[in-house]
């Protein structure tokens, strides 16, 4: 009897969750309709014009500049993150597995993963930006590179601890099999552990990419808030998340609808990336 109640309770909460999800999707879509009707669905996605109507000039909105900004910052962040997080993952997951060092390192990594993004943003603003300025890389210190660096620092702990999980999962009997053929530790890591955990590690980085794509606060503070496709790593721009955060406060009418449309696209993109990541994890574990 109590089992039945418990099950229906679970079912109800699952349904509510699904309803919330559908409701979000519905209201975002509804809010985005005016923008898509004005510029066309693909017209909106592939236009890099973002011109707020002031008085006489006609307003014109498109998402391309922000899609570009998002791709640039998140992919660059992923590239910067890779050479730091992968070694950490192997240290924690294999080399010093079960030892104090791994525990401490793993603890620090988990701690870093839990810091709110506004703190990273602040650090980027007050520490990293002046550094970029003093290196003469850019005048203001804002831009794609600054944002990517902070994004990278934010996703390193996440990517490292998730990858370490997959590295740890490689069966001991496979490793022993390789050792029994005379392989050294480095050879076992390179030729057995890495290939065996590769698809898991890959999915960890897909999920990390998903995080970088959706990250808002730190990027909003650092990317420079300009509404065109960044011309380089030192240029300013906006990501899909940061344009919304930067401009939705004073937006109404068609502009608000366009921001909502960008929100909808971001919602879809992160959902797809996360779905792919999880799908790969599932395929990896069977």
């Amino acid at each position: 009897m109590s089992d039945k109640i418990f099950r229906s309770l679970l079912l109800v909460s699952a349904l509510i969750l699904l309803l919330i999800f559908a409701g979000m999707f519905f209201s975002l879509s509804k809010g985005a309709v005016p923008a898509f009707r004005e510029f066309g669905f693909f017209g909106f996605i592939f236009s890099d014009k973002w011109i707020s109507g002031t008085g006489q000039s006609t307003e014109q909105y498109g998402a391309l500049a922000f899609i570009a900004g998002t791709l640039m910052t998140s992919i660059l962040a992923l590239l910067i993150c890779l050479p730091f997080s992968l070694p950490v993952a192997f240290f924690v997951g294999e080399y010093f597995r079960g030892k104090k060092v791994a525990g401490v390192l793993g603890g620090i990594v988990d701690l870093l993963a839990g810091i709110p993004s506004i703190v990273y943003g602040l650090w980027g603003f007050y520490a990293l930006r002046p550094l970029i300025q003093s290196l003469g890389l850019s005048e203001q210190g804002f831009g794609v590179l600054t944002s990517s660096l902070v994004l990278a620092i934010m996703i390193i702990p996440y990517a490292a601890s998730l990858s370490a999980e997959f590295i740890r999962m490689v069966p001991q009997e496979l490793k022993e099999g390789a050792y029994s053929l005379g392989a050294t530790r480095a050879e076992v890591i390179r030729n057995i552990i890495f290939p065996t955990s590769f698809s898991g590690i890959f999915s960890a980085y897909v999920l990390a990419l998903g995080r970088a794509i959706g990250e808002t606060m730190a990027v909003t503070m650092l990317i420079g808030n300009t509404s065109r496709i960044p011309r380089g790593l030192m240029d300013t721009g906006n990501t899909m998340a940061s344009i919304i955060a930067n401009q939705f406060g004073e937006a109404d009418g068609l502009k608000l609808s366009s921001l909502i449309a960008i929100g909808l696209l971001l919602f879809l993109i992160t959902a797809i990336v996360n779905f792919l990541g999880r799908l790969m994890i599932k395929r990896h574990s069977v």
Partner: peptide, 14 residues
């Protein structure tokens, strides 16, 4: 280990 080969309880092909 190359002079003394080992076969384990559970088959462990790579």
């Amino acid at each position: 280990r190359r002079m003394a080969g080992m076969v384990f309880q559970r088959p462990n092909p790579f």
